[in-house]
Amino acid sequence: MEITRLMIMAVNVLCLIALCSAIETPQYTVIHRESNFEIRLMRESSWMSAAVKELSFEKATKFGFHRLFEYTQGANLNFSRIAMTAPLLTSVVPDAGPLHSSAYYVQFYLPVAFQKTPPTPLPELNLEHSVWPSRCLAVRTFTGFAMDGNVVKEAEKLAVSLSRSPWANATSPDSVYAYSIAQYSPPLRIFGRINEVWVDISGSVLDDCKSVRIAEY
């Protein structure tokens, strides 16, 4: 029991150190900003994803991150160590199973050095490499811990803000995710935590994500 407790503490410390040193983030341009949300044009980006079937957002994030962390520490066919990045992204897939249970994709943004050719993860980790094309996102920032009790509320607040903007009813019908929660802070940080809600919107990338209703304002 004591050994197990010490191992858990060691993993937490490693996670803290890894996320504290995160310096690379996805690249984007802010197209529009209001007091409680902004519209971003995200550049094409490459991610390593862990699919998790779990009712709890917190448990899904924890289980997915554990697999991704093993990958960054050398659990790949190249035995490569990969620097941690930010954010850790948990994407929610609604109504994905029996009794309307949810599924999640916990996603790790690959550093620039591995964006094109990431090391192949060990099969037992069950990870998948995915490339996101350039996309339009609505983003809301919130503080504190991202937990089961608040992530849905934060997503709903973003939906309300969008409903009062030129992007009303602009959520993308092509997105496989209801929304994503981006966490930028180390797991043991108590104060000054930064999180975001991401929602795909259907603004045209070629037109800098502008809504057709912009002209009405």
Rank of each mutant, 00 (worst) to 15 (best):
L14H: 05
R189D: 05
A18F: 09
A86V: 04
E196L: 09
S56A: 06
S46M: 06
I39K: 09
K153M: 04
R213S: 08
D148W: 04
Y109M: 03
R135S: 15
S172Q: 00
W47T: 01
M7P: 00
D208W: 13
T120D: 07
K210G: 02
E156A: 09
R164L: 15
T141D: 11
E38M: 09
F65N: 03
H66N: 08
W198G: 00
E58L: 02
A146T: 02
V199T: 15
H32S: 15
S45E: 01
K210C: 02
F79W: 02
G97R: 08
I201L: 05
Y104E: 04
I194S: 02
T141M: 13
Y179K: 03
N76T: 02
R81P: 00
K153L: 08
V152S: 12
G97Q: 01
V93T: 10
A178D: 10
I8V: 15
S101W: 07
N126H: 14
D95F: 12
V92K: 14
D174R: 08
V13P: 01
V92E: 04
S56E: 04
C136H: 05
L41R: 13
T25N: 09
A10F: 04
P121S: 04
C15A: 08
L99R: 10
A103T: 02
C15P: 01
G192N: 06
I190E: 04
L14A: 15
L206R: 13
T90K: 07
S204G: 06
I194R: 15
F79Q: 08
L16W: 13
L55Y: 12
S180N: 12
T25R: 11
D208V: 13
C136T: 07
Q183K: 14
I17W: 06
